[in-house]
Computed example of a mutant assay.
Amino acid sequence: MNFLDPRHPFFRPLWRRVVVVAVCLGWGLFEFVSGAPFWGILFTAAGVYAAWSLLYTFTPGTPGDTENE
C-alpha cells in the first residue's frame, strides 16, 4: 500500500489531482503564516510529493484496472 496511489480511480480526473496538490500546499502556507514551521514543512513536503506523483509522473490506468481494489 502506497502513501498516495496515483493509479486509484479517484485520481483519474485532472481537477481532483490539482485540488489535492493545492490543498496540501495551501495548508502548508497557512501553517507557515500562523507560526507553525514544523507543520508548514510537513504539509509543503506532502504537497510537493503529491505534485510529483499526481501531476508530473502521472500515467492514467486502464478503466478495468482493479489491481488495488
Rank of each mutant, 00 (worst) to 15 (best):
Y56T: 04
L25P: 02
L14M: 11
G28E: 13
G28A: 13
L14A: 11
F11E: 02
F30S: 09
I41V: 14
V20R: 01
G26R: 10
S53C: 12
R7H: 08
N2M: 04
Y49P: 00
P63G: 06
A22W: 10
V48G: 02
H8T: 00
G28L: 13
T44A: 15
F10R: 09
L55Y: 03
V48Y: 05
V33E: 14
G64R: 04
V33H: 10
T66F: 03
V23K: 07
W52I: 01
R7P: 00
G26Y: 10
R7M: 02
P13R: 03
V23L: 15
T57V: 07
S34W: 15
P63V: 06
N2T: 03
E69K: 05
L54K: 03
W15A: 10
T59I: 12
W52P: 00
T57W: 01
W27G: 06
F58Q: 03
Y49R: 05
P60S: 14
R12K: 11
G35R: 11
L29M: 12
P60K: 10
Y49N: 07
N68T: 05
L29N: 03
D5H: 01
V18H: 04
F43P: 00
G61M: 05
D5S: 06
R12E: 13
G40A: 09
P60Q: 12
G40H: 09
R16P: 00
V21G: 05
D5V: 02
A22G: 10
F10I: 02
E67S: 08
F58Y: 15
Y49L: 14
A51V: 03
Y56F: 12
P63K: 04
D5R: 10
W27L: 15
P60L: 13
T57L: 13
L55I: 13
L29F: 09
R16M: 11
E31A: 15
F10A: 02
F11H: 11
G40R: 07
V33N: 06
W52A: 11
P13T: 07
P13W: 10
F10Y: 15
F3W: 06
F58G: 01
F10G: 00
Y56M: 10
T62P: 01
L29H: 08
G28H: 12
L4P: 00
F32E: 05
A51Y: 02
P63N: 06
F10C: 00
F10V: 02
E67D: 03
A50I: 04
G26P: 11
V20I: 14
